[in-house]
């Protein structure tokens, strides 16, 4: 039980850290035991072996690069696509939320594209862009752009009409209403969207690299599969998990920084 009222030697915060460590260590132990002492050992390398290989991957290259460079390549791909997705997603979302005309024109198209999983675009992207990075940007862009658009759209739709009224009463022009009320009050929604999108983009990069690549974390996994190297597959998975976790935490820290006014509402 985590209970701050008990006379514990640890604070609630410390307890949370302790339990997190216990949970992770527990997982590794179970994994290790299952891999060593059951028939699963045929497909599942033990945790100790994977972690050792993971550590080694930072010094010994897998293919052309060490792990750090693979992660770097993948992050670069996500970053480029994410920047485009952010710009276009925010513009489209705010536009649709604010202008009925804009909404009528773009919403049907957007709603059509939205449910298509990014991986479904891979064959087309190969035909259109070949095996270049452009195709990967395209896939990742599709993977994160919808989340940004939807959230921004929600934010712009949910602007408190009282605030718009108050600004109009003070003599605000349409442009001022847009930039001084609609946009800032959508910021928490936009951030929620960016947070989901960054994780989704990271999943999409892995998908796109699994099919058409010779570097990046997705390639590490697919290469492991084609050479029957289970350890390498697991190493790739561990890397993806750690980076994804880090990305989610960085964006939420950024959100707390930039939207401190909204902190109490716990968006």
């Amino acid at each position: 039980m985590i209970d701050s009222t008990t006379n514990s030697r640890f604070s609630t915060k410390q307890l949370i850290v302790i339990y997190t460590i216990i949970s992770l260590v527990g997982l590794l132990i179970v994994w290790e035991l299952v891999a060593r002492f059951t028939s699963a050992s045929m497909f599942l390398p033990p945790a100790s072996e994977v972690l050792a290989a993971f550590a080694r991957s930072f010094v010994e290259p897998i293919g052309q690069h060490t792990m750090l460079a693979h992660v770097g390549v993948s992050l670069y791909r996500v970053a480029v696509a994410f920047i485009f997705a952010t710009i276009i997603g925010i513009a489209l979302g705010v536009g649709m939320g604010y202008s009925k005309l804009f909404e009528a024109i773009f919403k049907p198209i957007f709603e059509f594209i939205r449910p298509i999983p990014p991986l479904a675009w891979i064959p087309l992207s190969i035909l259109w862009f070949g095996l270049s990075d452009t195709g990967k940007f395209f896939i990742i862009f599709l993977g994160c752009f919808c989340f940004i658009t939807v959230n921004t759209y929600d934010g712009a739709k949910n602007v408190d009409p009282e605030l718009i009224g108050a600004a109009r009463m003070l003599g605000a022009s349409e442009k001022q209403v847009f930039f001084k009320i609609v946009l800032p009050s959508s910021v928490p929604y936009i951030f929620a969207g960016l947070q989901i999108a960054v994780t989704a983009g990271w999943s999409a990069v892995v998908g796109s690299e699994m099919i058409q690549s010779n570097e990046g974390v997705g390639w590490v996994i697919i290469r492991g599969m084609s050479t029957g190297n289970t350890v390498q597959i697991m190493v790739g998975i561990v890397a993806i998990g750690i980076v994804g976790f880090a990305l989610a935490n960085i964006t939420s820290a950024l959100e707390r920084r930039l939207c401190s006014w909204n902190a109490q509402k716990g968006m």
Binding site: D160, E162, L163, I181, P184, V187, W261, N262
Partner: peptide, 8 residues
């Protein structure tokens, strides 16, 4: 209604 801008 108070109509203050929560982000300011």
């Amino acid at each position: 209604e108070y109509s203050t801008m929560p982000w300011l």
